[in-house]
Amino acid sequence: MSETQKTQQIDLSEENLTLLNSSIGLKYLFADKKIDLQKVIRMAQYETELKELQVELIKLQEWTIKNGKKIVILFEGRDAAGKGGAIRRITAHINPRQFRIIALPKPSKEEEGQWYFQRYINQLPQPGEIVFFDRSWYNRAVVEPVNNFCTQQQYQTFMGQVNDFERMLLESDTYLIKFYFSITKEEQARRFKDIKMSPLKKWKMTKVDESAQELWDEYTKYKVKMFEHTNTEKSPWIIIEADRKTKARIEAIQHVLDKIPYNQ
């Protein structure tokens, strides 16, 4: 008996057999001609858990609307870390009129002359709203200095102001969650390869992405500085190990549900 067969026998519990015979399990079971039973079970478990958590996210949003709460969730991480995919799963079934996803483009000439945080302040939630930042003001902590998109003086000014900025957010009755999706260099390279080969995804590759592997150590240096300076008691970073996308998505959603007291 092979190791794979042994593993499959161990995993064929009554619970997993029931899962395999469910509509979700059958969908994955017949998705490919070559059946990988462990993958089928894993994906069926993931989708089942995801749906249960998405029901709770609806309850969280209803609580947010009813009580006029303001929620800001930041998604940071290296290129191809899975930030966008996680946001899509979180927002898949909640009311689209009461949340926004913000992915700001390069600053305009007018914005370049403004206080750095101003363009982000303009996107903050109204009472009863959740705002997801697919990259945020922390561009200036890592991406901009690594790629010479800002001066060292601008970087130092940002680092001197960001904790006070977030303190003011929290003091204005706003919930703030900061996620950092962490992947290995090897996984990033693999994902870049997949993106380049996909006619539906290759548009995602930018000049910044193209240089990400070469500048890996520089990104690491600034990432460490960011954590050291901005991982405060009131506004901590939540590091999500994201080499496995499904696990990362579940972990992020679970943390949101644990952080916001919607079920009290």
Rank of each mutant, 00 (worst) to 15 (best):
S2T: 13
Q8E: 15
Q8S: 06
E15H: 13
N16E: 14
K33N: 09
K33A: 01
K39A: 12
I41M: 04
R42Y: 10
Q45H: 15
Y46H: 04
E47C: 00
K51F: 09
Q54L: 02
L57P: 04
Q61A: 05
T64P: 00
N67E: 05
K70F: 09
I71D: 08
I73P: 11
L74H: 04
A80H: 10
G85S: 11
A86E: 05
R89I: 00
T91Y: 04
N95H: 13
P96W: 04
A103Q: 10
K106Y: 04
K109V: 03
R119F: 07
R119M: 06
Y120S: 07
E129R: 03
V131G: 06
D134F: 06
S136H: 12
S136G: 11
E144F: 13
E144V: 06
P145E: 03
F149S: 09
Y155Q: 02
Q156M: 03
T157Y: 10
M159E: 14
M159W: 04
V162T: 10
D164F: 01
R167T: 13
R167H: 11
M168H: 09
L169F: 11
L170P: 00
S172K: 11
D173L: 07
T174K: 15
T174A: 15
Y175E: 05
I177L: 06
F179D: 14
F192V: 00
I195G: 05
M197E: 15
K201N: 03
K202D: 08
T206L: 01
D209M: 11
Q213S: 09
E218W: 06
Y219M: 03
K221S: 08
Y222V: 12
V224D: 06
M226T: 10
T230P: 11
T230M: 13
T232R: 09
P236H: 08
I240L: 00
E241N: 06
E241F: 07
T246K: 04
K247P: 00
R249T: 15
E251Q: 14
I253M: 13
K259S: 11
